Simulated scan of single mutants.
Amino acid sequence: MTRDDVLEIFREAGGLLEGHFILSSGLRSPIFLQKARVFMYPDKTEKLCKALADKIRSADIGEFDLIISPALGGLIPGYETARHLDVPAIWVERENGVFQLRRFDMPENAKVIIVEDIVTTGLSSRETVKAIRDLGAEVLAVACLIDRSGGEADVGVPLLSLAEYKVPAYEPDEIPAEMAALPPVKPGSRGLS
């Protein structure tokens, strides 16, 4: 699946939005990839996650025991990708602002792949890597549907993306005038209680 194929699925689902968006990282962007609109459609989600599973298989990173995703955004792609890889899917969730594995036990010496939805700065991925390593597991890679950083995000392990889509992201005090004229919208999930 090509980058254009991935973006076309987002467009078809109404998930490629233009305007003035406040990203989970706090950065501002004229483009927002609203994966929730894609995840409404099981056929579109399955197509993306099957392609991501194929990418993970072809990455030659060795055997792994399970997929772990950060809640909330990674739950659906993590589960669906794990289904195509025939491994269990579990997740971390925030407790007092820190990702924790709350509902599951980690197998001893587990080897895991972290599956994300969209990576911008890599913060959620790095936090997930840390949480899993703190439990004694080995994180082999992070895999995501779209890498908004264009390959620049450092997640602490290899990053496998189905598509790289470099989208401008600005500090709040560096927004272009045409974007600043639009009302900002914060569609992400980080910071929700």
Rank of each mutant, 00 (worst) to 15 (best):
R83T: 04
G74E: 02
V92M: 12
I56W: 10
L72A: 14
T121W: 12
P88Y: 09
V87M: 05
T121K: 15
D54M: 10
L85D: 12
F99P: 13
P88H: 13
A59C: 10
V92T: 13
I113V: 15
A71V: 05
T81R: 04
V119F: 15
P77F: 11
I68Y: 03
A71F: 06
K55F: 02
T81V: 02
T120N: 10
E80I: 03
R94P: 12
I56T: 06
I113N: 06
I114A: 14
L66A: 14
R57G: 04
I61F: 13
V115S: 10
E95R: 15
S58R: 08
S58F: 01
L75H: 07
N96E: 06
V92Q: 06
V112A: 15
D65G: 04
I114P: 01
I114R: 15
N109L: 05
D86M: 06
E116V: 11
R102G: 10
E93Q: 10
T81S: 11
L66E: 00
I113E: 07
L66H: 03
L75Q: 03
F99N: 08
I76V: 15
R103V: 08
E93Y: 11
V92D: 04
V112Q: 00
N96V: 10
E95C: 11
V112D: 00
L101T: 01
I114D: 00
E116D: 09
D117G: 03
I76L: 13
T120F: 12
L66G: 09
I56D: 00
S69W: 02
T81W: 07
I118V: 15
E95W: 13
G78E: 04
E108M: 12
N96P: 00
